[in-house]
Amino acid sequence: MNTNINFIGFNEEKEFLCKDFDTFNSEVKLRQMFLNLSNNILKPVCNFTRYEQRNLAKNSLKNAFIYKINQMLPFSYLKKHVNNFSFNLCINSTKIINNYLNKEKKNMFFVSNTKLLPAAKLILHCYINNNIQVLIDKHLLFHEFVLYKVKRMHKDKEVIDLGDSISIKAKDICSLKIYTSWKSINTKKLNIKDELNSAIKCIKEKEFNQVYLAYPKYEGFTKHIPIVVDELKNKQYQIKAIPYSLRSIIRNK
C-alpha cells in the first residue's frame, strides 16, 4: 500500500487508489471499495447501491460519478419555464444544474424543482472550476467505515464519534476507545508512534483503560497485536493494534 497517497479518488484524468492490501488486488475491487466508502462521506447526497458499486467499478470512477449525477437528474423535475404554482422552484439548484447541463449542451436553460437539491449538491461537490474531481482523505474514509461497523455491532451501547477516535460505553463493562488510521502496519517494527502516544495519554488521564488502534487488514497484518508499554506498568490497561477487514465491501449480498 502506498502510504504517500493521503487522498484517494480521482480527478479529470487520473485515479488515485490505495493498493496491495487485503483482497483488493485489482482496480475493479479498489474502485468498488472507494464507491462503498464514499457513501459514508457523501450521505445523504449520494448513495451507490451494492449493484452500482459492483457494476460501475468495471469502468472509471469518473464515469461512475457522472452516471450517478445523471441518474439523479430525472427531467420530470426540470422545466423550461414555470407554468404552475405547484412547482417548487429552487434557485440555487437551478443555477448549479444549468451550469452542469450546459457543459456539453449549450444554450439550454431549465428551472429546477427542490427535489433536485441532492443532485445539485453532488454536482457542487464533484466539480471544481468545471473539472470533475472527487478526492477524499483516506483516514477519514477508514474512520467513517469503522464507525459505521461499530454502530451496527454495538446497537445496545453508546457509540460516540470523537473526531480523532471512537468511544464505546455501556453499563457494567469497561469503556473502550478506538483510534483509526489508514496505514500499512509493519508487524516486525510497529510504525504506530502517533497513535500509541494518544493511547498512552488517554490511559494516563484515566479516561479509558482499554484502547484499540485500528488499521486496515492486509496479508502481513491479520491478527491482533497486544502492546506493552513500560511507562504504564503500574496501571491496569490494554492496548491492541487491530486489523480491520474491509472485505464486507466486496461480498455479494
Rank of each mutant, 00 (worst) to 15 (best):
K43M: 15
N47S: 05
K80S: 06
K106E: 15
E52I: 01
S60R: 11
H81S: 13
P74G: 03
K29P: 09
Y100F: 15
F24G: 07
N55C: 12
C46A: 08
L61E: 06
F85A: 07
R50F: 07
E27K: 15
N25T: 11
F75D: 08
S60W: 09
D22A: 05
F109H: 03
K43P: 02
M108E: 14
K58Y: 07
K43Q: 07
K80A: 01
E15W: 10
Y100S: 00
L37P: 06
R50N: 14
R54C: 07
N63D: 12
N98Q: 04
N113V: 00
K115C: 01
L73W: 00
S60F: 08
E52L: 03
F16E: 08
K105P: 10
N83M: 11
I41W: 04
N4I: 11
S26R: 15
K79Q: 12
F75A: 04
N107C: 13
N63A: 15
K79F: 05
V111L: 06
C90E: 09
N59K: 13
K106M: 15
I97V: 15
D20M: 04
I96M: 06
L37G: 02
L78H: 02
N84E: 02
L37K: 05
A64N: 06
N25D: 03
Y77K: 15
K79D: 00
T49P: 06
L42R: 11
K43T: 05
C18F: 06
I97A: 04
S86H: 05
E27A: 11
F24N: 06
F7Y: 10
I41A: 09
K14S: 14
A57I: 01
N99E: 11
K29Q: 09
S112C: 09
I96N: 00
K95V: 12
F48G: 00
N39W: 09
L17P: 04
F75N: 12
N88W: 08
I66Q: 06
Q53Y: 08
N92A: 12
I66K: 04
L89Y: 14
I8A: 07
E12Y: 13
F110Y: 15
T94D: 07
N4G: 14
N59V: 10
F65D: 03
L89K: 07
L56E: 03
Y51D: 09
E52G: 02
M33A: 09
E52T: 01
L89G: 11
K105S: 04
K106Y: 08
S38Y: 07
F85I: 14
R31D: 01
N88Q: 10
Y77Q: 07
F48T: 02
K43G: 05
L37N: 12
Y100L: 04
Y77L: 09
L89E: 01
P74F: 10
S112F: 02
C46Y: 01
N11C: 08
Y100W: 10
S60I: 13
V111H: 01
D22H: 13
F110C: 13
K103L: 15
L42A: 03
N40V: 09
K106V: 08
